[in-house]
Design a protein around this nucleic acid. Structure first.
Length: 595
RNA sequence: GGUCACGUAGCUCAGAUGGAUAGAGCAACUGCCUUCUAAGCAGUUGGUCACAGGUUCGAAUCCUGUCGUGAUCACCA
């Protein structure tokens, strides 16, 4: 289809030059939105150097010329409001259908313009802290990351799905201290809860105690919270713990390892439930040392500076950005620099490194990219991209996960959705036996779809009623579409045959709408990739499904006598199934063959 | 205050490179299961595209300003 439009473009430009001696590079051609006007439109009014009378003259001439040249594909044109509209022949669509049949329904061969020479793209997403379970903020992150990875893979890139685990830092020390002080000797087993949820308990307990202590101090000495923090004993203990940890203290490392293992074990279960996968896992506890080394080197090269109190800083827009604390321990940005260098060593040539991280860290990434510019690495700034997305709010407020309040864990959401799906299934269909697996897949699809259909720049104001909705534009709509088509093809025993010219009038509007949609697939996938927006592709899949359901509901497919008509419809069903299959895999919506 | 997002139907959201009469879903109200799976289909109702200017043949889309919402500006991550 793109080729066809390019041809039209070329001819229009050439003709314009021949007639008026006007040279332009491109003419505006688009799919006609209103089918009453046509299928493809050339916007003559965009040639602004022509006068109105000349536009009409040129338009009609061009129309006649094109219709003669492409008799096979175009049968009619009209000229309205300076738009030159063409109507596509049925042959145009039949050719597509026959092509699929000849290619034995191999979509990749049909699309045929995925070719990016295996360029390497690293997509960094999820990056959990090991101090609490994964929550719906992580969910948005991992779904954007996973989907955008699949989209780039589809475009022929070599994609590394990369997860960094923030397994070190002050927050982990809080859990360590909490375990020592309040939970000594207790394990997830003794509490009988999922191990990462136990780790969360440690962290929230610490924050609660810290909060209490600070309130007491500020009341006692009549000072504000900031000043009270400096007097907090708990914070002193935690900072000591961090120094101990960075100095490889045996006891510290032992507890740290134990707590992290609990966290990983829990994360793994959640990832498995959602079918989120990674090609590599990087532990910051291993890369922060590389970061420290680079920073020390940078002091010598006068990129970074040593302050009076021995902290190290970087100047960003005349502001001091601390890279190493005065006690020598490292910060988030230190680890980030280390991780980048680790990657550059591991992979020789990185075409693009995408960080999927929330928009609250835009400032942080601006600093990081500025540092990269200064320390002269083998990667340039325009090969780094921060894919930022907006927050997931609950009850109208951003989730502050500190105290464990107002926080929704993915595990809990999955459970709730599953119960909801079972309930709705029982309301609709009476028999409920051994459908557990399928209902589980429906609930996973439903959750994922709710998140990826929304543009990353928008705030998601999470609420259960909305999220549990299973009508209309939802995951199950896509799954159900697949089930219907699959069911038809399973029942069919006829063989397909090439459509002959004399049968071209058997193809109708509903079928054409689907085919029109399908030939746009490569454009959409490209757009979704370069805009870093999975929702573009998601909405396309919904749109396609909608057209399929219209077609399905308004046309009989198997139970018709005309074998030629039946043949056309069955082939289209086959095409649909292949595209749905591919699309759902990209979106990570589980495919179900029977409900 | 600086920077960055966002503002489209009662609600949730689509509207790429400016194009013709701004589209879906939910909610409300009508129809359609003896016929390939009704979590569906067909239809009705619902809009000053936050506001004001500008750019041009043409603006929800681009530019400027105003208002509103949110994020961010840490020896947190």
């Amino acid at each position: 289809m793109n080729k066809f439009i390019k041809k039209l473009n070329k001819i229009s430009i050439k003709l314009l030059y021949n007639m008026y001696n006007i040279k332009i590079e491109k003419i505006n051609i688009l799919y006609t939105k209103n089918y009453n006007y046509g299928d493809i439109s050339i916007i003559i009014s965009s040639i602004f150097c022509l006068k109105d009378k000349e536009k009409k003259k040129f338009g009609i001439y061009l129309g006649n010329y094109i219709i003669k040249k492409f008799k096979k594909y175009i049968y009619k044109y009209n000229f309205k409001n300076n738009f030159l509209n063409f109507f596509l022949t049925n042959y145009f669509y039949i050719e597509i259908i026959n092509k699929f049949l000849k290619l034995n329904f191999n979509i990749n061969k049909f699309i045929n313009d995925v070719n990016n020479n295996n360029k390497l793209i690293i997509i960094d997403y999820s990056s959990p802290n090991t101090n609490k379970p994964l929550h719906i903020g992580h969910l948005r992150n991992m779904l954007i990351g996973n989907t955008i990875s699949n989209i780039y893979y589809e475009l022929g890139y070599k994609v590394i799905k990369s997860q960094i685990i923030n397994d070190r830092g002050i927050h982990i020390c809080k859990s360590i201290v909490s375990w020592k002080l309040f939970f000594n000797g207790i394990t997830p087993l003794s509490y009988n809860i999922k191990s990462d949820h136990f780790v969360g308990k440690l962290y929230f307990k610490f924050e609660k105690e810290l909060n209490k202590e600070i309130k007491n101090i500020s009341y006692k000495y009549n000072i504000n919270n900031e000043k009270a923090k400096k007097l907090s004993k708990l914070l002193i203990i935690v900072n000591d713990e961090l120094v101990k940890w960075e100095n490889n203290n045996t006891n510290s490392i032992y507890i740290w390892k134990m707590i992290n293992l609990w966290a990983y074990k829990g994360f793994k279960k959640t990832y498995n439930a959602l079918n989120i996968k990674f090609d590599e896992i990087i532990y910051e506890s291993k890369t922060y040392i590389i970061g420290k080394k680079i920073i020390n080197k940078g002091i010598k090269n006068k990129i970074f500076f040593l302050d009076k109190d021995k902290s190290v800083y970087f100047l960003f827009k005349k502001k001091k950005i601390i890279l190493l604390r005065s006690n020598g321990t490292s910060l988030y940005i230190t680890q980030e620099i280390g991780t980048l260098i680790y990657r550059l060593k591991k992979y020789k040539k990185i075409h693009l490194l995408i960080y999927v991280v929330g928009n609250e860290q835009i400032y942080h990434f601006n600093i990081l990219f500025e540092i990269v510019k200064k320390i002269n690495l083998s990667i340039k700034n325009n090969n780094l991209f921060h894919l930022s997305y907006n927050s997931v709010n609950f009850l109208g407020k951003k989730i502050k996960s500190r105290y464990g309040k107002n926080i929704i864990f993915i595990d809990d959401l999955i459970d709730k959705m599953y119960i909801n799906v079972i309930k709705k299934f029982k309301e609709k269909k009476k028999k409920y036996n051994n459908k557990k697996k399928i209902l589980k897949l429906i609930s996973i699809g439903a959750i994922k779809y709710q998140f990826i259909k929304i543009n990353p720049n928008k705030i998601i104001d999470f609420n259960f009623d909305k999220c549990l909705e299973l009508k209309g534009n939802t995951g199950i709509y896509i799954q159900y579409t697949y089930v219907r088509i699959y069911s038809i093809l399973k029942k069919n025993k006829n063989k397909y045959f090439i459509i002959k010219k004399k049968h071209i009038n058997l193809i109708k509007k509903n079928e054409k709408d689907i085919l029109k949609n399908i030939i746009e697939y490569p454009n959409i996938i490209n757009k979704s990739a370069y805009k870093y927006d999975p929702s573009i592709f998601t909405n396309y899949v919904y749109d396609l499904s909608k057209k399929i359901n219209v077609f399905y509901q308004n046309n009989k497919i198997i139970n018709i006598k005309n074998i030629y008509k039946k043949n056309i419809r069955l082939i289209i069903c086959n095409i649909i199934l292949k595209f749905l299959d591919k699309s759902m895999k990209i979106l990570g919506i589980p495919i179900i063959k029977k409900i």
